[in-house]
Design a protein around this nucleic acid. Structure first.
Lengths: 204, 204
DNA sequence: AAAATAACCGACCGCCTGGTCGGTTTAACG
DNA sequence: CGTTAAACCGACCAGGCGGTCGGTTATTTT
């Protein structure tokens, strides 16, 4: 029983460090030895717990990336009244983590999608699936926003959701090579601009 | 004299094939032998013309990527009257190439920025520089649009430019794993939505 | 205490990588 | 022609890669 705990602990440690290095250096550019070195573990330990580098990565995507995307980008929007406002706050929070150069998991996702695109269809599927979950939840929130009077009725929710995700993925790519704080400010400002065009016109 | 021509031709051939493969498989995941194999050339030929893999890549960025970004994303906006409309048409054209799965160079740029971020500062600089040229030209176009009455005067041109580039980078990341044609349509539709919020209010 | 098994070690393998270098082919020129 | 240099060849190298495996240590179980 205690063994099972140790097993879980070690695997989790490996996955955390693995994600950190895969994120920073890329999957193909990070060797298993890199990960093991910063953990003071050996090849034997790795292949005792995981079948291959690929299976290891997939376990990271499902256990860490998916959960984090869900808790950071999906859940915070789910319950709220005004979806546009909730989305704005949520993305601003995510960009705050990004501003301090920590992993924000939306970017982790976008990064990996770029790396595996056309190179590993299986892994790609896991990533696009997460993306789709996010998209579907945005669409749901937007639709509910329509019935609640927070969102203009004739807008195309799928299009808006795709555009929101796009702009977020993109700003994260841009942020890496510039003034992060200013870019975050710019982004939220323009997102608000955009959202204004989706709000019902207030009849004075 | 003829020698010089041959030299240029071979180097260009290498650069074209190199870009194609780096784009499809990633820089770190593409070996020099990969490139040489599809060119029927040898290691000797490669290292006769280029000093290293890195220098080779930089020459590709400067000679091919930069020029193409300029001719496809910057020039088409430069001369036009209505900048918002010109940008829309330009990005739609770029997404058309993307829809048919060809290289659109905005995406090439975003892709490489993701791959080299935090891994190779020197290469990163070349890439962010291209990005900045694009951004500056967008800002210029937007400012001119203000004086010409096509763009609302109090908008933040820098913010808008960043947001446009962001959304474009992002949609290209999303396009790889979905219905390309529909995503292009969605994107342009929402871009137009966004641009409406930047246009001067028409007094009926 | 002994047996069993989970957890881990690290030398080793075959393969591929970026890069080198002595040699060969090709083509311009006197 | 012959000379000369540019263009190209391909065997080779050291190092790193993902992955294997026979062995050792730590922890339960009996």
């Amino acid at each position: 029983m205690d063994k099972n705990l140790k097993r879980m602990a070690t695997m989790h440690r490996m996955q955390m460090t693995g994600l950190e290095l895969f994120y920073r250096q890329g999957y193909y550019n990070t060797s298993i030895d890199d990960i093991l070195k910063s953990l003071d573990l050996s090849k034997g330990a790795f292949y005792y717990h995981f079948q291959s580098k690929e299976e290891f990565f997939i376990s990271i995507v499902q256990n860490l990336v998916f959960r984090k995307v869900y808790s950071m980008l999906i859940e915070p929007v789910e319950g709220k009244n005004n979806p546009l406002h909730a989305i704005e706050v949520c993305l601003d929070d995510a960009l705050e983590t990004a501003e301090h150069n920590h992993m924000d998991f939306g970017f982790v996702l976008a990064n990996f999608m770029n790396e595996f695109n056309g190179r590993n269809p299986e892994i790609m599927k896991y990533l696009t699936d997460i993306c789709k979950v996010w998209e579907v939840n945005l669409v749901t929130a937007l639709q509910r926003g329509k019935t609640d009077g927070f969102v203009e009725r004739h807008i195309d929710s799928e299009g808006v959701a795709a555009y929101i995700i796009s702009s977020y993925f993109g700003i994260r790519t841009l942020m890496v090579g510039g003034n992060r704080k200013m870019m975050r400010y710019h982004y939220i400002q323009q997102l608000r601009n955009y959202f204004r065009s989706l709000s019902p016109v207030v009849i004075a």
